[in-house]
Design a binder for these strands. Structure first.
Lengths: 195, 195
DNA sequence: TGTAAGTTGAACAGTGGTGTTTGAGTTGTG
DNA sequence: CACAACTCAAACACCACTGTTCAACTTACA
């Protein structure tokens, strides 16, 4: 029952439930940033009390969900080959992990109102820097336009990823079409238009 | 006190308060989609009871705020000359009304959880079509790429407008820089990249 | 100036969420 | 098998918000 001391020996079903809860939390919070604890527990197929047995507060649950979704993202990003042509690298990044990044973004929104800003930045910093580096490298190598600040370009990427995910959940966009539309759009946005 | 019958004769200060409340509602809801009634009343410099004197429920207030912000948007859109070169027209549209559209978008998000979907679409339809038409015309005239569906292009515009507004409130972006960055980005996104 | 219209804070009930306790039931594990 | 670990429904206190009533007050306006 203890929340998460240095317990090495927890029963298998307990550990399994923690995972189910985190999965459910990520799913629910992606759809609705202020999903209730009951809602998440139900989605996890678990009693509300059981959830509180594993996470002391709603905020702690959100933090755990954020940690998980971000570390998942980190794992995927680390497995990718982002060297070489920045345009190709960006396309690979988007097509292989747009959904993950979008969900992470959504959970991040939920965390915004539940966690101290410092903590969020701390968790989010590492994977964010990976993307940031790619963009800056692209700029210095002349692959991406440099008439707009790098911070804005990363912001554009995030907004489009999150927006596309939102369109999918709203039925405005087919899940399968998303990666192509996103990468096609972002690459164009990163290229200076003649006019 | 009556909420809004066909009252022609209301005291001047009452009508003024209604406006102050709507202004405050738009401002608050733009920052936080589920701002409380107390919060809005306080921002309007008015007692909570007074607010309930003018709007029977929170939902009614949100609907009124949405109607107002959308009609403001309609007014601006109608005053613009969107004929001629679609690229120029789009730039004019963004630079002259990005903040308004962004706020309308934000209030729309608040309305999403407070109003029946049909009502939202009904209110939002007219100004949305104006933008939609411009984009379609740009596609058929060859000014905008047509390898991506028009619905996605409009979606991109909305996401970037809303995202930029969010960046501004988060201090990631200077208010004054926003219009240029947005229009520069959107126009590029609407142009097919070579790679 | 008189009066109706409007404003206000205090106090109320109702609702829905959070977090806790309890006590009985279930199940993994040694 | 035995028992500790775990789950869970019910019920609890607490809090924030919505929406209402009331009685005192200010103020626009004729």
């Amino acid at each position: 029952m203890s929340h998460s001391g240095t317990s090495q020996a927890r029963r298998a079903d307990a550990r399994q439930n923690v995972q189910k809860i985190l999965d459910a939390a990520i799913a629910c919070l992606s759809r609705n940033a202020d999903a209730s604890v009951s809602e998440i527990a139900q989605a996890a197929g678990v009693g509300r009390v059981t959830l509180y047995g594993h996470f002391p507060t709603r905020d702690a649950l959100i933090e755990a969900a954020l940690v998980r979704v971000i570390s998942e993202g980190e794992a995927v990003l680390a497995s990718l080959d982002l060297a070489g042509d920045p345009r190709r690298a960006l396309r690979v990044l988007i097509e292989s992990s747009w959904l993950l990044i979008a969900r992470a973004s959504a959970v991040l929104v939920a965390a915004q109102t539940a966690l101290p800003p410092g903590r969020i930045h701390q968790l989010h910093a590492e994977p964010a820097q990976r993307v940031d580096e790619l963009i800056r490298r692209g700029q210095t190598e002349g692959a991406f336009r440099d008439d707009l600040p790098a911070t804005w370009l990363t912001s554009v990427l995030h907004h489009l990823l999150k927006g596309a995910a939102l369109d999918v959940t709203n039925g405005l966009l087919e899940q399968a079409d998303a990666p192509r539309l996103i990468s096609e759009t972002v690459l164009a946005a990163y290229t200076r238009a003649d006019t």
